[in-house]
Structure formats: C-alpha cells, structure tokens
Design a protein around this nucleic acid. Structure first.
Lengths: 142, 142
DNA sequence: CAATAGTTTAGAATTATTATAATGTAGATT
DNA sequence: AATCTACATTATAATAATTCTAAACTATTG
C-alpha cells in the first residue's frame, strides 16, 4: 500500500495540489518515527541523497514555506544565519547546542507552563517559546 | 567634559583598542537614557544620519561583533533574515511584535523564573530566554 | 618616534533567500 | 480522453545580509 496516498490526501485537505515534488518532500519529512529539525540545505541534501530525485532549490523553498503556512512545519529562530524548521508543529520549547548547532526538543514536562503577566494592548499572544542555549561544560563559550 | 573618556576607558578595560570608529559607535549606542534594540542596518543609518560620519559597513559589522564578544551587546534571534542586537546585555525575555517587527523588553517581573528540569549530560546552560510573539488582535496571523 | 600588531576600508566574494518568466502539470470541463 | 486553465516547477537572475581580502592606516609599546 503506497503511503503516498496519505500525503496526497493530506495535501488536498489543506488546499495544496499534490504534485510529485510535494509528495516527495512529504515522504522525506514525514515518513519517519520521530519529528526532527532541518534547514533547507539539509532537506535538499536528503532529497538528492536518499531519494534519487532532483528538486529545484526554488521548489524546495516554495514547498517548505507552503507547508509552514498550512501548519505542516514550524519555523524556529535561533541563528540569524539559517532558518531551522521543525516537523513537530506543536508549541514546544528547545535546547540549542551551541557546539554542534543541534536543536533538541523539550518535552512538556521539562519546563513548567510559562505565565506572562504583562500584556500589550491591542495585541494577542501568538506563541510563547523558550530557547535554552547549552554548550560543553569545559569550554569557553561566548 | 568629554563623555568619550568613559568609552575609551571601557574599551581599554575589555581589551579593545579605542579607535575613532569604536568610540563613535559607543556614543550612538550608549549615550542614551534607555537601552534599545537595533539591526546593523539601523546602526549604519544612525551613524550616517545623526552623526555626520561615514563608517565602513565592514567596520560596523566588525565592531558590533567585537562588542558582542566582549559583552557590550547581546544578539537576539527572532527572524532568520536579520540580526537584532540589544544594548541591554542582561539576561531577559522579549516580546516580538509580528506586525511592526518591533522588539520589546520584558521586565523581570513580567515572567516568573523558568525552571528547567531536563539537563543534557556534559552540557551547561548558557542562557534561558523566552520569546513571546504578539500580533494585532484583529488580524489573521500565520 | 619607529616598530608592530591590531584596525579600517572599499570592494569582491559568499551565502541564504526571493523573484522572474518560460515550461510543465493537476484537476476540472468538455 | 482531449482540452483548458490555474497553479507549480524550473533554471537562472536578482537581492540582501554578511564575511573575506588585501592594502592602507593607527594606537600602543619600547
């Protein structure tokens, strides 16, 4: 049974045309046990290595952004130089390893619910996210 | 009394040569009541507009990064496209207005101390920061 | 005040991302 | 099933932010 059918369905549901490329990207991103983090660069590499397909860089950007807009992906800001994406779209916090530049999810139990006492008039809170930067214990970090 | 003397001292203290350009940038950044947030672009504009000086873009980058390394500035990651810096170098949280792209500091009292229950072996926590994204109440936000 | 080590500069190079415009294709319509 | 049309994909060009380079400059040390 082709797993792709799920993706075709899914894409249709949110109003994205199930094209060859989008399905291929879905496979790379979602045909796995755990959610994970990636950059566009990572994704391009995965596609060209794991699968024997070449998808134009522009399409990868378009598709990733389309997915993000529709809630299939979440963008994480850590580093001003790169965009990280997360296939775990639920609201959650992160550890960022400054040595390896690796992102690690926090479980809900890792950090208590955050209570924001201030509110900005006319504005609603879209998200509240914590970033915990960690680094090797025996290293001089900035 | 030339305020610059303070900056010359300060720069010397952390081992940065007090050059004309660094002092000028200090003036723009620290000769003010409140701390503030800026991008490199903002800073370049300020220098060329407010003061009548032209400092090479490369120097502005170098200087800002030198200041950051020495703890005169703090980098804030929000947006993957731009680097924001903060002259408030203490550990604190932020609101980010997604409409105006404006950063707003949180006071300590705005958010309770965050308790991290997880720890990653061999790694120490460098910082714990919260980003609260807000947007206009009556607007469709991504 | 000369030596030198660090700094500034303009411009080129690099990197990440977005725009463009021609070609291709999914899905509806016939 | 052929045709149509709107949306997608593609290669490439363009843009934006940042870093590199190598020559000229300057603050400190002796």
């Amino acid at each position: 049974m082709p797993k792709n059918c799920n993706f075709i369905e899914k894409l249709r549901e949110v109003g994205l045309r199930p094209t060859k490329q989008r399905i291929k990207i879905c496979e790379v991103l979602y045909n796995r046990e755990k959610t994970f983090h990636f950059t566009i660069n990572d994704l391009v590499k995965m596609i060209s290595e794991k699968m024997n397909e070449k998808i134009s860089l522009a399409t990868v950007y378009n598709t990733v952004h389309a997915f993000e807009k529709k809630g299939y992906l979440k963008e994480i800001s850590i580093d001003s130089h790169k965009s990280y994406f997360d296939t775990n779209t639920s609201s959650h916090h992160h550890f960022f390893d400054e040595d390896t530049h690796e992102l690690i999810d926090c479980d809900e139990s890792d950090i208590d619910k955050i209570n924001i006492k201030k509110n900005i008039t006319g504005k609603k809170i879209n998200s509240v996210e914590v970033l915990v930067r960690v680094a090797s214990d025996n290293q001089t970090q900035k």
